[in-house]
């Protein structure tokens, strides 16, 4: 009894330790109810289509997505999947989306550098030829590649959504250098830039990306209202799809695997009980 009490007390102590408080407040993260949450979650195709439009018309000006090709847009689970075209390179919608974009190439006759309309097999072109060019256009900051950004940030799509909607006027007492913007959801620590009350350091951080979204900036083909909220949600969902394009396949496969394993487990359990029936152990 005493032994158990000591052990429990020790355990309690260990838990007491867990809500450790960091010196500065955590960035604000707002949770969205995504269609792809949970073990049965699926992508919302219309949302992915809107999200692609936001990426293409807004983010693509600064951010590359070099792991993606246009054909990915028409693959199973993707925004423009059409079961009539299992090979997405043949999907006319994907073809026409690609055709609108110019990609660099080499003229096979002259060897000159040229640009031509993209084909589904082409990768998304990068907005800048190289890193120095990207930095030069962004006040020294580098816009990260967005292919797997939804897996590369704690919080994933919730983080991106919060970041997109987290721009606020800098509170008095926060000194920002030129080209920087205050964002309540950006990862960071403002303690050193904060001149105000030491116990009231504002949450969030500074980011070199100007607020990318604005009401009405993108016209959605399905008539969805073009609010900042809507654009942020849709582009976050799109970026999550881009990072985990096989999520639906994975969850569907998982359901089958779990049912099979569960069945197998029950079967083995009863075999076990039967085989051991006459053994005292």
């Amino acid at each position: 009894m005493l032994r158990k009490a000591i052990a429990l007390a020790a355990l309690g102590l260990a838990f007491l330790g867990s809500p450790a408080l960091a010196a500065h407040p955590k960035p604000v993260e707002r949770d969205v109810a995504w269609s792809f949450d949970g073990p049965f979650g699926k992508f919302d195709t219309a949302q992915l289509q809107r999200g692609y439009k936001v990426y293409r018309e807004v983010c693509a000006a600064c951010h590359s997505m070099h792991l993606l090709s246009f054909r990915n847009l028409g693959e199973k689970g993707g925004p423009f999947y059409d079961p009539e075209y299992p090979n997405s390179n043949d999907n006319p919608y994907v073809k026409s989306l690609a055709k609108d974009i110019q990609v660099p190439d080499i003229d096979q006759d002259t060897g000159d550098a040229i640009t031509r309309p993209a084909m589904p097999a082409d990768r998304f072109p990068s907005p800048f030829p190289n890193e120095p060019a990207a930095r030069a256009s962004n006040g020294g900051a580098l816009p990260p590649d967005l292919s797997v950004i939804a897996k590369g940030r704690e919080g994933g799509p919730n983080y991106i959504y919060s970041l997109m909607t987290g721009y606020r006027d800098a509170p008095a007492g926060l000194t920002l250098s030129p080209g920087q913007h205050y964002n309540v959801s950006m990862n960071g620590d403002l303690t050193s830039a904060w001149k105000g009350d030491h116990h009231k350091v504002p949450p969030g951080g500074v980011v070199a990306m100007p607020p990318p979204l604005a009401a009405g900036k993108v016209t959605f083909d399905d008539g969805s209202p073009s609010t900042v909220e809507q654009q942020a949600k849709d582009v976050s969902a799109f970026l999550y799809w881009a990072a985990e394009p096989k999520m639906m396949e994975r969850k569907q496969f998982g359901l089958g695997a779990m049912i099979y394993l569960l069945f197998f487990t029950v079967l083995l359990y009863f075999s076990y009980r039967r085989i051991w029936k006459n053994v005292a152990h």
């Binding site: 394993l261 197998f264 487990t265 083995l268 359990y269 075999s271 076990y272 085989i275 051991w276 053994v279």
Partner: peptide, 11 residues
Amino acid sequence: YYTVKDGFAIA
């Protein structure tokens, strides 16, 4: 005896 018991635990 133990193939089945281990089997169950593995599952």
